[in-house]
Design a protein around this nucleic acid. Structure first.
Lengths: 132, 132
DNA sequence: CGGGATCCGGATGGATACTG
DNA sequence: CAGTATCCATCCGGATCCCG
């Protein structure tokens, strides 16, 4: 399953292929945090061009992680993106990535204790992680 | 903390920066699975060139995720790489990545139930994940 | 507003050859 | 065995302009 010469692919590698592109995870995180529109994904991401963003969204859609919704109400077209179940299943991965940074910030060089607590709660809330 | 205009960096992004390079996670996984030598990391990775691998290792060392050990016993030089505590703390991230693929393989298109069980156990063992 | 088309420069990756 | 040195291709990102 791992790196031996058998034919069984490594499940970690398959997962990585889905998200191992510069902006992809951040976009997915944005969606967990409530963003749905093209222009919203561009906020706070200087350096993310239209071309790259639309490429990412197309890519995510092809991989079944998000879905594109087009509504046309009285001629007002609204395009939004939402996570699919398949995309939402990445919540634990995203959570562990965030926890890694928080836990490894041993001497509070980045966050103080209060911030760590708040951030942890925020992620658990938005990512629907049940505390243990 | 997240994507708002405040100064607190997103912890997920910081974690991603460490591992968001093509071969880095696979190398870390290899180390969890027992590999320690340059030539071992190249096994089963056609397309990973010496230059890229040595760049990755250097990068990982600079980020404090691995450490390089040189032993010279009777003129026989042995260079090995090992995870640091900081690197080992990525175990849950790797685990959740693997679990994602296993869990989302709903119709057993990739793995059968037996394989999923074995792979899960293997990862938990090597990554030192305590079952719940 | 949500993109597609084009152009361009720099970073990156891979192959190969070579070295201690 | 563990790299370094070169060379080359390509990809990718960013800017800009354009379109419905």
């Amino acid at each position: 399953m791992t790196n031996d010469k058998d034919e069984i692919p490594c499940p970690m590698e398959l997962a990585i292929q889905l998200i191992n592109k510069k902006w992809v995870i951040q976009i997915i995180r944005d969606m967990f945090f409530g963003k749905t529109h093209f222009s919203e994904f561009k906020e706070d991401k200087p350096g993310l061009s239209n071309k790259v963003l639309s490429g990412c969204l197309k890519n995510l859609e092809e991989n079944g992680l998000i879905e594109k919704n087009i509504s046309d109400i009285d001629g007002v077209v609204d395009i939004s993106y939402n996570l699919t179940d398949h995309g939402r299943a990445l919540n634990k991965v995203i959570y562990e990535l965030a926890m890694y940074t928080l836990n490894e910030d041993i001497n509070n060089k980045i966050y103080d204790d209060e911030q760590k607590k708040e951030i942890g709660e925020y992620f658990r809330d938005k990512l629907n992680i049940d505390d243990n």
